[in-house]
Amino acid sequence: MAKITYIEHDGTEHVVDVKNGLTVMEGAVKNNIPGIDADCGGACACATCHVYVDEAWQDKTGSTSAMEDSMLDFAENVEPNSRLSCQIKVSDALDGLVVRMPESQH
């Protein structure tokens, strides 16, 4: 279980507990948090679950796969700390994680 803070682009914060084994995307979607669309349901096919991972957490969220890199490369408003949240698995090590959402998901 990890407590995760999702911050919408307008600054609205949502703090929820997310079960281990789910992804950071699923944590948002299952709690109806706006700002993460996740159209493909986690297949790494759409890049609509784009988030910015707070710097302090970048190491713990792991590295990106070639597919994720490639999808992110063409998403909008990409920053060095951009991730697709469907590719980050939740574990105890992510307790306290903070992610921010871009202005839109495309």
Binding site: A47, M67, S70, M71, D73, F74, A75
Partner: peptide, 10 residues
Amino acid sequence: SPPEFMMGKQ
């Protein structure tokens, strides 16, 4: 080929 898909979409 994600680049072709993503850029094609745009």
